[in-house]
Amino acid sequence: MSTEDGPGIRTTVFMKGCPLSCRWCHNPESISPLPEIHWLGVRCIGCGTCVKVCPHKALSLSGSGVKIDRNLCAGCGICSEHCPSTALELLGKKWGVDKLFEELIKDRAYFEKSSGGITVSGGEGTLQTKFVGRLLKKLKAEGIHTAVDTCGLFNDSVFDEIFSHADLVLYDLKEIDSKLHKEFTGSGNERILDNLTRCCEYIKELHGKRILKGSGNLFRLFRMVL
């Protein structure tokens, strides 16, 4: 249940992988596109099971807890499977569209009462274009409100494959000055601003179509988060 990722009560899907690495990132565990092992000290009982089962000898137990050697860790998740206290969590789980869909519609009653729905966030959801596209299409077919949160750095295919199935795009423009953008996020914003312009054209184009179809709340199709 999320109340912060768009209108109404929502369930948010956090996708792995992001082209930016913002200094203030809220979800740094979602930057890498690969599954990552994460250790939570408050849960750890110090049993050492993880050290024993790791096939890559990437883990060690010290006075301050479990140390992960990122160079050796392959993100296989075996330690997390065996960790009795869920102190080691594998962040990044493989989901099929159908199974994820089943999970997401459990809160349907709350979406309906609040005009809420599903938000794909991240990471950068648009990186997994095909998957997100299929998921949103399926949700939309069920009449569920769909939103995508993006940093603006995406390929052309995203328009047709994802945005055409989205009711709302949360366009998170981090900084207007490209130099500052690069300083804070590790990447310039030329492409992002360019995409934004194309988004405006896309809206105009869709606007026309929608008017012909006579449906939809057009002005909420894109909302920029600045």
């Binding site: 109404g8 809160d107 009653a109 009462k113 609040s114």
Partner: peptide
């Protein structure tokens, strides 16, 4: 914080309407 703004209070109302259902 769930009640921090008017928009959030609306969401809380919707939560109660959802609770009526589920």
């Amino acid at each position: 914080s769930i009640m921090k703004s008017a928009e959030h209070r609306e969401k809380f109302k919707a939560f109660l309407r959802g609770y009526i259902e589920n």
